[in-house]
Write a protein that binds this DNA or RNA. Structure first.
Lengths: 346, 346
DNA sequence: GTTAGCACTCAACGACACAGAGTGCTAACA
DNA sequence: TGTTAGCACTCTGTGTCGTTGAGTGCTAAC
């Protein structure tokens, strides 16, 4: 089936109405738009087609339609009009750059914070660590019999931690044993010199903890293989709680806990060395906790070299057009900031 | 009316049951405790007395009783038995101190984070800034016509911001004007040299912005008068969402937004230069957003001089006994850490 | 002073009906 | 052949109502 102009117009109208109201859109609502000049019945036929094409979904038979992830994707790639920033919005972002903070990471942290109040989404930013990290220390801390916290400290102040649920109980003694083997073999070694085979070696050394060791080594490998140990800042996490999609406390908690663990979000934005604004919609984030979230990311440069990322997190129902224009502009301002202004601020 | 032994026992039983189950406690539940050996009817009489004394409350006529803030206060001051830490708990806290992070503030930040996973409350810690701060820069950023963000940057990387709601609209131009007056008069001046009269002077200089200026000056004064511009870290903010008292998303959002603004919590813990563990129950926090929260705080020392604070935040229904023992022990460990261990870690 | 008994209160819950929004299908229309 | 009016149908959300059960306060007896 072909996506003709009328289908496009209807898809666009559905998405824009849903972005605004967070409620399934019925045929009558669409038909009332004067530009289209068609009856609800016709809209219903078209909507049925769009649903068949996987662009719309129906929460239940007697409800209106909502966009699917694929629908948003088509909208974002082909239909979305560019949002023009207002003079006020531009002024506010420029004025953000006036913050007189000389340390780059405090500055980015504050921009993230303050900007989140202006945009009403959650803002995320990473600061790249230039130097190659070395693992300094491992620590395993049992929370209860089946849950441990694995903590990895690198020499660049970076701490990564994750909660791991085990299939069999672990004692404090086991934890000390495993930590010390990990420390003896891997501490002090630069991350780039650790590879799968050195980790496999550990597996045989720790054979007596067979069932426990696998998820631990997985996390260690993940730590050393995410090349840049970027610092991550969030601003306005609580903005997420304003969206009706998170009015269920369990859903909200699940999401906030996911974001609280910074290695999670690092995984989402890792390996996205791209030149322009990138949009990740719902399941494209590859994490069930983010299935109803979208992320809009843009790289920004410091001194024309090291690359950090700044972006927004919101429900898939977010205003993509506005988000893209905002993040694009903000990243542009940051680029200019690092080139010209840092010197004089010092 | 006197608080005799039986009344004490009943109050204690009600509080401990409510701490555990988060549900109003009925007379039958209390009477079933064998130690007391009294009938539900007697308990009901006693409970009515305790209610009259302001120690218990009734959510509605046919429900059981819940403790009032005053009830908790009496419990905490007079009835509560000391919780003895288990060997495991002690080991875990000691093992927390093994974290090999040389920068003190990163270390405290991580301890806060990781400890929150062990204790399941929200952990809060401040790092004192030794040196006397100087205000470096003011900035006013309009969010919309009636809300502004006031940002104060000091030379010690500290940034304080607050959202202020105005009684009349403000333009971007007004904001620039007011900022520049503030900057001209106050930037570069050490906080200790700014006092009420220098602020009063500004008020006449900015007379044309009469209605707007008052809350702004209030915040400025608050900034400069909180003597230590401590950094504040939170760990496990999302732990709060596990408590049934915050299962209402609006309540949860209100609380998280309050905590998100660090100057708020600074106000709560400011001027608490005390020697031992301090407990603030519900309304004692002097903030409506914290009316159903309690805070358990302890000072800790770095190099025997500068004083930071570490503590827990939870619902008023928190396990005070456990919280106190934990925070006391943790603060003790931190004291020892800074005295002996920091050198060798460097 | 304590307790058994009893009438009373109130939130929580499930059953039920009903309104309203929206759909899909059919048949008529241009 | 594409569009539309009409209609029967579906499903959620809401309000009403009676029931249940936990808990109380009061009275009178022990």
């Amino acid at each position: 089936m072909e996506l003709d102009d009328r289908k496009k117009a209807i898809l666009e109208a559905v998405i824009e109405s849903y972005i605004e109201n967070a409620e399934p859109v019925g045929s009558r609502t669409i038909a009332k738009r004067k530009q289209l000049n068609i009856s609800p019945a016709t809209v219903r036929n078209e909507m049925a087609d769009l649903e068949e094409m996987g662009l719309l979904e129906q929460p239940h038979t007697s409800a209106g339609r909502i966009p699917s992830d694929l629908g948003y994707r088509v909208y974002v790639d082909k239909l979305m009009k560019r949002y023009e920033l207002t003079a006020d919005e531009i002024n506010r972002m420029r004025s953000l750059m006036q913050l007189k903070i000389s340390e780059m990471d405090s500055l980015i942290r504050e921009i993230t914070n303050i900007y989140s109040r202006l945009i009403n989404y959650t803002v995320i930013a990473t600061m790249p660590e230039q130097k190659q990290a070395t693992i300094k220390h491992f620590q395993i801390m049992p929370i209860d019999s089946h849950n441990i916290l694995l903590i990895v400290v690198t020499d660049s102040k970076m701490v990564k931690e994750t909660k791991i649920t085990l299939t069999r109980p672990i004692t404090l003694y086991d934890a000390v044993q495993i930590s010390s083997v990990l420390n003896e073999s891997l501490a002090g070694v630069p991350c780039k010199d650790i590879n799968i085979s050195s980790i496999k070696g550990l597996q045989s050394e720790l054979y007596e903890y067979d069932e426990i060791i696998q998820p631990i080594l997985d996390f260690v490998y993940e730590c050393i293989s995410t090349e840049d140990n970027a610092k991550i800042f969030y601003g306005g996490i609580t903005n997420l709680l304003n969206f009706p999609e998170y009015s269920n406390i369990n859903r909200a908690r699940e999401l906030l806990e996911y974001l609280d663990n910074k290695s999670n979000i690092q995984r989402v934005i890792a390996h996205r060395q791209h030149e322009k604004v990138k949009i990740l919609i719902g399941s494209e984030n590859n994490a069930i906790e983010l299935n109803d979230c979208s992320v809009v990311l843009s790289p920004y440069q410091i001194d024309g070299r090291a690359i950090g990322t700044i972006g927004l997190i919101g429900p898939t129902r977010m205003n993509y057009s506005k988000a893209v224009s905002n993040i694009e502009f903000l990243a542009g301002q940051l680029n200019r900031l690092s080139e010209y202004n840092m010197e004089e601020k010092k």
